[in-house]
Simulated scan of single mutants.
Amino acid sequence: MQAANSAHGDEVDRIVRAWGQELPELDVAPMQVLSRVTRLARHLERARAEAFSAHGLEGWEFDVLSALRRAGEPYELSPGALVQQTLSTSGTTTNRIDRLTARGLVERRPDPNDRRGVKVHLLPPGAAAVDGALHTLMSHEQQMLSGFGDAERDALADSLRRLLLPLDTH
């Protein structure tokens, strides 16, 4: 892969130039942004997998545990809230809770406000795993963004937010 500051640009520049030669009538300008987002997503997925694995977690485990951790004291949510926050189905969430319970990372507790309800509670080993994974992940992500100043990072975040907002509402 070529360096971003080289005279010939990056791999996306090469791809866009090639399409421009092969199909000059087609506007491939969106590739300038979206192909880079795709490539960035692949790098981020690798960094996340590495961070989670270093703490004995898979991505889905991190998703569930982090939803519970972000909930604040007493670090518990209903299964329905976990479905919403992890964008998974009810059946998938039940299976995930079962597996995390078997690993001693969470437990089911009766919902004090609903006799038929259950809350999923984050246990100390689950909190330690998710906290460790998040620290490792943030180190990777800080490195990925190290070439940006605060204002540049904020501008990039704002631009990506504008791109995603209409897509996330569907």
Rank of each mutant, 00 (worst) to 15 (best):
H140F: 10
A129H: 05
D114C: 02
L40P: 01
F52K: 00
R39E: 13
S35F: 11
F52V: 00
A127E: 15
L122R: 00
V118I: 07
P110I: 03
L123C: 05
D98Q: 12
R99W: 13
V16Q: 06
L65W: 06
R14P: 07
S146I: 06
A129D: 05
T89W: 07
A18I: 04
L68N: 05
G126P: 06
R115G: 10
P79W: 12
G132Q: 08
H121L: 10
A71S: 15
E58C: 01
H43F: 13
A71N: 07
L100W: 07
L123T: 04
V16I: 12
G56K: 00
H55G: 00
G91C: 03
R108I: 06
L122Y: 04
P124R: 01
R36A: 02
W19T: 09
A18N: 08
H121F: 13
G132F: 02
L26E: 08
R116N: 13
V118E: 10
A129Y: 02
V64C: 04
G72F: 02
G126F: 02
V16L: 07
F62A: 01
R39P: 02
E61R: 01
P110Y: 09
G104V: 06
V64F: 04
L57S: 02
R69K: 11
L105V: 05
R36V: 02
R161L: 15
R153D: 12
G72C: 01
S35I: 02
G91L: 06
L68Q: 00
H140T: 03
R42S: 09
T93D: 05
L26V: 09
E25R: 05
W60N: 09
H140E: 12
R108H: 07
P79Q: 13
E152R: 01
A151P: 05
G91W: 01
A54E: 14
L87R: 15
G147T: 10
L100P: 00
E25M: 09
P24R: 03
Y75Q: 08
L44R: 12
L26I: 09
Q32H: 11
R17M: 06
S159E: 14
D131R: 04
P125F: 03
L160G: 14
L160Y: 15
R116Y: 10
S66W: 04
L137Y: 13
G104D: 12
L105R: 12
H43I: 07
S35Q: 14
R103E: 15
D158C: 03
R36S: 05
L156W: 11
G56M: 00
A54L: 01
L34V: 09
D98R: 12
Q142G: 12
G80C: 02
G149D: 13
A151G: 10
V33Y: 10
S66T: 07
L145R: 09
A157T: 11
L134C: 08
L134T: 14
T38V: 11
S88C: 06
S88T: 11
A128E: 14
A102S: 12
R161Y: 15
T86R: 00
V106A: 04
P110A: 11
A81G: 06
R69T: 08
A29K: 06
V33K: 12
L82A: 10
Q142V: 14
L68D: 04
